[in-house]
């Protein structure tokens, strides 16, 4: 498929609008979601929004620079993915949770603490089908076992 012969400013404008929407929605996901993996995906989506703008600008100006920048962004995204997923693994080993608010102790000394939000949540919707299992009546009593995180148990 080839691009239109004249890449007018209207087309550039359309691309920038879509890129802006992707960027804002990615920012929304990064700010609101508490799952580390979903936060990481949101950042990738913000990058996608920027890349759309870069490619449209490159085509509008008739140069390769936009696409070269995109390749650089792909490189940076790969680096970010490797570091972020490594961090996710380490953080998960420490606390056995992907929740970002678990780490709210790591903050500025004078910042107000984020109130712990543990039990409060939307009710889980049971998915009909083979994934939802019947709730069994517990038989006997639960044996004592350690609920500590794996890394603490290991040492």
């Amino acid at each position: 498929m080839t691009a239109p012969d004249v890449f007018t400013i209207e087309i550039l404008r359309n691309y920038l609008l879509v890129g802006a929407a992707l960027f804002s929605l990615g920012m929304l996901g990064f700010l609101t979601r508490r799952n580390l993996i979903v936060m990481f995906l949101s950042v990738e989506m913000m990058l996608q929004g920027v890349v759309l703008g870069l490619i449209a600008f490159g085509r509008y100006h008739g140069t390769w620079t936009g696409q070269i920048f995109t390749i650089v962004i792909l490189t940076v995204a790969a680096c970010e993915a490797s570091i972020a997923l490594a961090l996710v693994v380490v953080l998960y080993q420490r606390k056995s949770s992907l929740d970002a608010t678990v780490w709210s102790a790591v903050r500025e000394a004078d910042a107000p603490p984020i109130e712990p939000v543990e039990a409060e949540a939307e009710p889980a919707v049971a998915v009909p089908g083979p994934e939802s299992y019947p709730r069994l009546i517990p038989a006997g009593h639960e044996p004592e076992h350690s609920r500590q995180a794996t890394i603490e148990r290991r040492t």
Binding site: S24, L25, L28, D99, A100, T101, A121
Partner: peptide, 25 residues
Amino acid sequence: AVYDRAAHSPGPATVSCFVLLWCLL
């Protein structure tokens, strides 16, 4: 997980993100 079913301060975050979107658009 509980943390997937509870957003972190959804109100202010939504307002700021969509004000940004409004400015950009």
